[in-house]
Simulated assay, not measured.
Amino acid sequence: MNICILAALHGSDETLTTRVGDDEADRAAARCAHRIERAISAHGGRLIEATRERTLARFDDANAAIQAAVDALDRIRNLPPLRGRKHPARLGVHVGALSTEMGKPSGEGVVQALRIANQCEAEQALASAQAIARLGSAARHLVASRPVAGLDTSRLDVTVHEIGHGKAEAVRQPLAQRNERLQLRHRNGVVHVEEIRPVVLLGRELGNDIVIGDPRASRQHARIERRHEGFILFDESTNGTYVAVEGQVERLVRQDRLLLTGQGRIGCGFACEEGDEREIVFFDFE
Score class of each variant (00 low, 15 high):
R146W: 01
A244C: 09
Q183M: 11
L73H: 02
D284I: 02
G230A: 08
E229W: 10
S41K: 11
F270V: 14
G189V: 09
L16D: 09
R204A: 15
G164V: 06
V243D: 00
R178S: 15
I76H: 04
I212V: 15
L135I: 03
N208S: 15
V158G: 00
D214E: 13
Q112G: 03
V253E: 08
D60H: 12
L233W: 02
N63L: 04
D26S: 12
D60P: 11
A68F: 05
A64T: 05
E279A: 05
H192K: 08
F231H: 07
R257T: 12
G11R: 06
P80G: 07
R115T: 07
A69Q: 05
R134M: 11
N78K: 08
P147G: 00
A25R: 03
R19H: 14
V148G: 01
L56Q: 00
R197P: 06
C4A: 14
E236R: 14
C268W: 02
K86C: 12
E236C: 10
A62W: 09
T100H: 07
D235E: 02
H10K: 05
E194A: 13
R77F: 00
S12Q: 11
A244Q: 14
H161F: 15
R134A: 10
L9A: 07
D23T: 13
V200W: 05
K104I: 14
H228E: 15
H141T: 03
D60Q: 09
S218Y: 06
V70W: 00
L79G: 06
G240C: 12
I132S: 01
R77A: 07
Q130E: 15
I40L: 08
M102L: 14
H228V: 11
G150S: 10
A117P: 08
R226K: 07
C4H: 09
F234H: 15
G269P: 06
E180D: 10
Q183C: 13
A39I: 05
L6Y: 02
A217E: 10
L79E: 12
T261Q: 08
L259G: 01
A133Q: 10
E286I: 08
D256K: 02
I163S: 03
N188L: 11
R155N: 05
Q124T: 11
F270M: 12
A29Q: 00
Q173H: 06
Q112S: 12
H141R: 05
E108K: 07
E24Y: 12
I196T: 15
E246A: 11
I232H: 05
S237M: 09
T15R: 13
N179D: 14
V199K: 14
V111R: 11
R226Q: 09
T153Y: 06
V160N: 07
E286S: 10
L156W: 12
D256T: 03
A127W: 01
S99Y: 08
Q130C: 08
G240D: 10
E49G: 03
E279L: 00
E108Y: 09
A42Y: 01
A125Y: 00
Q124V: 08
A65V: 07
